[in-house]
Amino acid sequence: MRLGSALWIALAGFGAAVPFFGSTYLMGVVFQVAMWIALAQSWSMLSATTGYLSLGHAVFYGVGAYVCVLLTGIIPFEFAILAAAGSAALFAALIGLPVLRVRGPYFVILTYGLSELVRHVVMRIESALGSFGRMIFDVPAQEVLLWWMVGLAVLATLGAYAIRHSRFGAGLAAIREDEVAAQTIGVPVTRLKLLAFIASAAIPGAVGGLALLRTSYFEPAQAFDPVISFTIVTMALVGGTDSVRGPILGAMGFALLSELLWSTLPQLYMIVLGLTLIVFVLFVPRGLSGLVGRIGGAR
C-alpha cells in the first residue's frame, strides 16, 4: 500500500509537471485524464459507497459550467470555479431530499431524467435569450487550468479515501447493504445520503467550470451532455467500485483509450465504451482494481 501511495503521488506530480516539458497535446491528454479521475472519484463518493447509482452527474458538471460562464469576466476565474462548485453542491442539496427517496433502478432513471430536464431548460433559456453558445475571451493560461484540474483530481481522490475510511463511510456502507437495518441501529440515513450527494456534486461543478474555460465556449447541449454521465459510470464500474484506486484506473484507461480512438477511429468510441462496460459488468465485476489486486496478490 505504501508503494501504491507513492505511485499515485508520482502520477499526480507528473501531471502537474507536464507544462514544463510536455507538448500542448500531452497537456490536453493529462487535462482529460485528470478531469475524468475527478469526475469518477466524485461519483464514487455517493454511488460506490451507498449503491445509489447516479446516471445524472452531467447535471452538476453542466451547472458548474453554466455558472462559470455567467460569472467569467465579472469575478476572477478562481472565484468563478469556487462558485461553480458551490452552485453544484447547492443544487444537489435542493434536489437531494426528494431524489434520494427512491432507490435502485428508480434512482438511476430519476437522476438521468432530472439531468435531461435541466439540460432542456437551460437550452430553452439560452435560446430565449437569443444566445446559441457563448464565447469566453479572457481565459487563464492552459497550464493554470491544468494545475487546477490535477488539484481537483487529487482532492477528489483524497476525499473519496477519507469518506471510505471514516465513520461517515461506515454509515454509507450500511445504507448500501440494508437501509432499514441501518436506520434501526441509529444511522441517520436521510442526512447521510444527502451529505454524500452534496459531496459528490461539488467537485464535478468545479470540473465543469474548468472544462468550460479550457474550451472557452459554452453550449448547453454539450455542457449537460448525458454522455458525460454515461462515461463517468462506465469508468467507475470498469475501474471497480470497491476501492479508491478503481475510479483512477478506470478513468485513466478510458481517457487514454479515447485519445487513441479519437485520432484513429472516432466513430468507434461509443461502441468500444458500450462493449467494455458489458464485458466488465458480466465478467470482471470487481473491475480493473480487482484485477490489479489479484495480480499483485493484495486485497
Binding site: 456502507a173 448500501r176 447493504e177 437495518a181
Partner: peptide
C-alpha cells in the same frame, strides 16, 4: 434477518457502535 451481508460480522457491529446510543 437483515444483516449487512457484504460487510464482515465485526464491521456490522462497528456501524452499530459508531451510530448507536
Amino acid at each position: 434477518v437483515r444483516p449487512f451481508a457484504g460487510l464482515s460480522v465485526a464491521e456490522n457491529l462497528r456501524v452499530a457502535a459508531l451510530y448507536g446510543r
